[in-house]
Design a protein around this nucleic acid. Sequence first.
DNA 1: GACCAGGCACATC
DNA 2: GATGTGCATGGT
Length: 215
Amino acid sequence: MKSHEKIEKIMQTLFEYYGSLNWWPADTPFEVCVGAILTQNTAWSNVEKAIENLKKENLLSCEAIYMTDINVLAELIKPSGYFNQKAKKLKAFCGFLKEGFNWNLDTFFNSASIEKLRKQLLSIWGVGKETADSILLYAGEKPVFVVDAYTKRIFSRHGICKENIDYDKLKLLVENSIQRNVEFYNEFHASLVYVGKDFCKKKNPLCEKCPLKDL
DNA sequence: GACCAGGCACATC
DNA sequence: GATGTGCATGGT
């Protein structure tokens, strides 16, 4: 089977298994961006605590984060780990929106082509490829596929790629296999995270109950 | 107490 | 271009 056929089969199987997941767990596009930064190499349960702290202090807006003292910010997001780094990253992201887009995410998303938006996001300190793509897809509703550790692990175990494949190579492989559609990419990435968490942990790679085991 | 979790920047070869 | 290291919490 060719790799694009395998990828289609995986997507189809996961859609049948999980149904509509309608992802990213956040109330607003800005909250998606904050979550995308806070979840870097971190369990989501820890990110939830950090976001809850920010909500309690009414700090889930670009202006508020920009104005808040960085040490105060760091203390609030402590549960998400790497808190000093991430406080600086949140500041950098908000500074970017303030300077170029009048604090406004929509203004940013409507300002240029997807390629240019991605380049601009990548120029922000603390925003790498996965974070940029998560923001584009889940906050901006742009048809961009998000690669993550689960994607690499699952795809490599099904012989589609090496575990350490280059990020952009795998992204293009999926985007050239699956119709460029926001809903497809949203659901596909979400279901890969689910199946990764449920059945494909680092420690037990081959789980008998995995819906993908017979592919 | 080790290992892991929805990465990224930076240094060095 | 590949490889190594620091960053840090909370759950298993």
